[in-house]
């Protein structure tokens, strides 16, 4: 089958659209996550989600979204709390939770899952499905709906997210509901993590979230420009990665992340050149 024939199939198009939507969401929130020094929360949450998937598998719950989403949301809220109250202790708490859930999750999978291909299952959960085409119809639709929700929330709260990211104390002191906005942010981040897990797996999510934001920050200097640029970059990389993975038969998550890394080096170089030109 040629690439063109591939993209005439509905399920290929659906999967690609979902992949791009996921890339869009993770880039939107990635900027805030990086700037709020919350990159580690994304990482911790993805491990929590892995543990939740293992439990869902052990309990033989077929649509693991129902378990994974609430568990991850609750953990996101808890992590955000501890991260704010005590900086050093919060770091340790996140490390404990993320490594702990990873270990327990793997153990549970080993003990209870009767799958013949256990290491294959674990690998898929950690690094994403081999191909985006293995996503089921329900997964595709759920991803699409959640992604659209995330984008809507981001657009509605854009200026509030900027305010609590730039200077949370000022926002709170001048009578804004900084705590509520942080909570909304935490829940949205959790949703993005859970959705993105389907595409790139729990170990690679951080890359999807962080790389476009860091790349954009090399070149652009305002919050709006950085956000717009990282979204465009992330979507481009995801589209490119999906096509490449189909053409070359490589795992889709790892391919997308590799393209993101290439983008990062490209933008770093562009940033250096721009600074030279200005100086």
């Amino acid at each position: 089958m040629t690439l063109l024939e591939y993209f005439q199939k509905d399920y290929v198009i659906n999967a690609t659209v979902v992949g791009i939507l996921i890339a869009l969401c993770s880039a939107l929130l990635g900027v805030t996550l990086v700037l709020k020094r919350f990159s580690f929360i994304g990482d911790g949450l993805s491990h929590v989600a892995f543990g939740a998937i293992a439990i869902a598998a052990a309990l033989k719950i077929t649509s693991d979204f129902l378990v994974v989403l609430p568990v991850t949301v609750v953990c996101a809220v808890l992590l955000l709390r501890t991260g704010q109250n005590a900086k050093i202790k919060g770091d340790a708490a996140i490390a404990m939770i993320s490594v702990g859930t990873l270990a327990v999750g793997y153990l549970i999978m080993n003990l209870f899952a009767k799958s013949a291909n256990l290491s294959g299952d674990v690998c898929a959960t950690l690094f994403g499905s081999f191909s985006i085409l293995t996503l089921t119809d329900t997964e595709v639709w759920l991803c699409a709906v959640l992604s659209v929700l995330v984008v809507a929330v981001f657009l509605l709260f854009y200026h509030k997210i900027f305010a609590v990211t730039f200077d949370e104390d000022f926002a709170a002191a001048t009578g804004n509901r900084a705590k509520v906005y942080n909570l909304i942010l935490a829940v949205t981040i959790a949703v993005v993590i859970v959705v993105a897990m389907n595409l790139v797996g729990s170990l690679l999510i951080s890359a999807l979230v962080i790389f476009p934001a860091l790349s954009a920050m090399r070149v652009f200097k305002s919050f709006r420009d950085v956000t717009v640029c990282s979204v465009i970059l992330s979507v481009t990389c995801a589209a490119l990665g999906i096509v490449l993975s189909i053409v070359c038969g490589t795992p889709v998550g790892a391919t997308i992340v590799s393209v993101d890394i290439a983008g990062f080096f490209l933008f770093s170089a562009a940033g250096i050149v721009l600074r030279r030109v200005k100086a």
């Binding site: 900027f162 730039f166 200077d167 001048t174 652009f220 305002s222 950085v226």
Partner: peptide, 30 residues
């Protein structure tokens, strides 16, 4: 939300990408 505040030191990080206009405008949020 009737309060304006100038902190002694901002919590804002060193490498935060924000234009002057974005920062000033965020004062109108309340």
């Amino acid at each position: 939300n009737d309060i304006g505040y100038l902190p002694q030191q901002t919590a804002a990080q060193k490498d935060f990408p924000a234009s002057v206009r974005e920062v000033v405008l965020s004062g109108c949020l309340n």
